[in-house]
Design a protein around this nucleic acid. Structure first.
Lengths: 209, 209
DNA sequence: CAAGTTATGAATAACGTAAATCGTAACCTT
DNA sequence: AAGGTTACGATTTACGTTATTCATAACTTG
């Protein structure tokens, strides 16, 4: 009958308790630092709690589980990466250039995770393996970014208007996985800049038919 | 100075000794059966040797290592899968249909491995993780298949002729990874038939510009 | 010399146990 | 009640040891 925990609109799932609490921010910051330095699997909740002088169980006032905390940080990282790609996209005018930058930008960010923020890369990998919600939200945001570009291109007349919009956007969104998916990047073991460009060109030509 | 082992032309690497030896065939068959039933990691060389009444070290007369044996079987499986896709491709005339069948066919075979031949799927997964040569050879064969179709399409006038051939073929070949790569399939956890079709259509439209 | 085997060392994997870790409940304190 | 802690059970993880397994070398036999 009564609702015990406040469900914050638009907030990530797995969270509980007061949304705008000083402690929540502290926890998130400590978690970010530890995950970044020691990795998700190697940092314990006790580590995080100790860093801000709290007992471990108290973390559960704000997060359902360790995974929920991981998802929150993971979402931050993925969102930031996508935001940076959006900046790159915003810096050019034509839908063609924008779309190309989605591919090259994502490739560059993915490769950057792998090389410059190895622990974050590992956490993203875990999030992929365990199908965390952060991943679905990222894919959705990526889809929306691509969809906006394609809609704009259709309106401006740069892109064709006949093929089904959602299907096409979904396919092109999936294609970017080739260069951002942490498993594939790790396996490739090298920058996939050229490949990303080539695939981007395929996508672009399919739209400028 | 002298060449101790015969290097067979076109043969898989990691093999030694007489090429056309009765024992080699027996070993390969026993290996195939065991890998298929118990998986690559769980079967020991002793298992294989025992199955055909040989001592373990004698296997080394024909193969450099367990991995070499694994690569041989893995190549067989991948080649067979690709051959079946080639059959599907051969059954239609137009380059457009052919290309579409490369995508849907690979998706179907990949999904088939995962569901009907789980141990083989696992072995292919190992071959991907450990970057076996069988994988590179498969990718090359896949590239060649796609290249033949696109060249044919260019000659028949179905496909455009302006974009760089090798780059385009490489990109489209990479795109098929989305539906055949064992890691991605496993993670998706469902058939990617629709997605494969959608991406195939993107590739096709890029060529019929 | 072709077709094998036995002996053996180094690297890996399997296993059982001890220790940490996650997560809950019940309890304190202002 | 908000803001915490201590106590504690059930899973996981880490670890050290034993047992396998891979791979080579040297040996045997027809």
């Amino acid at each position: 009958m009564e609702q015990e925990t406040i469900i914050e609109a638009g907030g990530a799932p797995g969270q509980r308790g007061p949304i705008d609490h000083k402690r929540r921010q502290q926890i998130l910051q400590a978690a970010d630092e530890h995950f970044r330095l020691y990795g998700y699997r190697k940092t314990t909740l006790a580590d995080i709690a100790k860093a801000i002088n709290l007992s471990t169980p108290y973390l559960y006032k704000f997060f359902d589980s360790k995974q929920a905390l991981g998802e929150a940080i993971c979402s931050q990282c993925l969102n930031r990466a996508l935001a940076e790609v959006e900046e790159l996209v915003a810096a050019v005018k034509s839908p063609v250039d924008k779309l190309r930058r989605v591919f090259t930008g994502l490739e560059s960010k993915g490769w950057g995770f792998l090389n410059d923020e190895r622990k974050i890369h590992d956490m993203v990998l875990v999030s992929f393996e365990e199908r965390w919600g952060s991943l679905a939200r990222f894919k959705d945001a990526r889809f929306q970014l691509i969809r906006r570009i394609i809609v704009q291109g259709r309106e401006s007349g740069d892109f064709e208007r006949k093929t089904p919009l959602e299907e096409t956007c979904g396919a092109i969104s999936n294609m970017t996985d080739l260069f951002f998916h942490p498993m594939l990047l790790e396996q490739a073991g090298k920058s996939l800049e050229d490949e990303a460009l080539a695939v981007a060109n395929v996508a672009i030509r399919s739209l400028t038919a």
